[in-house]
Design a protein around this nucleic acid. Structure first.
Lengths: 212, 212
DNA sequence: CCGCATCCGGGGCGATACTG
DNA sequence: CAGTATCGCCCCGGATGCGG
């Protein structure tokens, strides 16, 4: 990107991450952790492959991303955020919070969706209502690759599903899942509108909104 | 801007404010308040006039900016942020905080600078060390149009200079002012390195860093 | 397959000139 | 003062190729 040539920290930040697609690549590396090139592409649908390669090169040069070859027998190259890259988390959370109202409008006809996008910020806005209870898991899916909430010790974190049986699971349209996770829709209402869920319902209720 | 076509609040936010120059226009309207077209241009140096016009049109259409004709005898048209536009403040603060390290490197050869850019975030990171003392003002300038800090009641706010005599003033290079306001440089050291200041020195010391 | 590089058409951007 | 108009150019988008 052409620099803005302004001695202002906002302009300097945008000189580095203001390019098209750049912040979405950072988002993907934040929610996924270390990821292969192909997995980043899957998580940033719509990006042209040459742009992804070029952006990653710039991000590495700027010190926000590191390229690492995993040792045998796995033998794959992964990209991961450096500490400096992870420091963009507050920026992405602020952006996502500002953009949330647009999510309550129905999604565009051809909008892509990944459960990960929803689960990651949700996990940061929810809290474990029973911090002393044992660890439980809730699986979330909208037809794509499922994500798992791990709930324990007062905290909620997300990780990819490993295929094992969760203590509870939710499945429905993206808006339905958003409604439930944001607390704007209670389970009974959501079920009547098409949400499917199973397992221990109390486990789901253990996820509480943290604050306004 | 082409939409990203992703049902993700970060992508939706970038659909609206991800275009080149857009966030810098928002910054300018945030630090200045209602401003005329020409003043925005001065505050966003480097932008082409057709782009400024187009961005303002989009921002109005998206409901972030309002265009208003001031009543006679002033007779000018001003642009100002709507409530929705002002809600981007946390995003810009987060971005500016992340970009701050780039400011400690020396500015680019042709970097433009406005004292306003520095004073606005500084005011939010500083606090009034003597909340019960009467209102005092500190004028800040780096050769451009000065900005005034108003310090009273525990708070620090910025406003344009109205030409009246401040209780204290600071003048120096952008980096020098940054060093003093960020607390990385004390007044004596800064003076020996070229900072000029006058008036009541205790007034300047009344500005305290609020936290890490 | 994975991780790109190359090619090419279109449109957003940048700079300048011009105008009610 | 508050914008249009115009015109290159380069970035972006989409497709394809290709070595490891």
């Amino acid at each position: 990107m052409r620099t803005y040539r302004q001695y202002c920290s906002i302009a300097k930040a945008l000189d580095v991450v203001g390019d098209r697609w750049t912040l979405l690549i950072i988002r993907e590396l934040l929610v996924r952790g270390p990821a292969r090139y192909t997995d980043i592409r899957e998580g940033v649908p719509g990006i042209a492959t040459n742009l992804l390669a070029e952006r990653l090169r710039e991000l590495i040069r700027e010190g926000l991303v590191r390229r690492r070859d995993t040792p045998p027998p796995v033998a794959a190259t992964v990209f991961e955020l450096t500490e400096r890259g992870r420091e963009l988390e507050p920026v992405l959370l602020a952006l996502g919070r500002w953009g949330a109202p647009y999510m309550y409008e129905s999604p565009g006809q051809e909008d892509q969706f990944r459960s990960r996008w929803l689960a990651w910020p949700a996990a940061m806005l929810l809290t474990d209502g029973e911090p002393d209870a044992p660890l439980v898991t809730v699986e979330l899916s909208a037809g794509d690759e499922p994500v798992v909430f791990e709930i324990s010790g007062g905290r909620i974190q997300t990780r990819p599903s490993d295929g094992s049986e969760p203590d509870a699971w939710l499945r429905g349209t993206p808006q339905m899942l958003l409604g439930v996770l944001s607390g704007r829709l209670d389970l009974a209402t959501a079920r009547s509108e098409g949400l499917e869920f199973g397992g221990d319902e109390r486990v789901i209720r253990r996820m509480q909104p943290v604050a306004a």
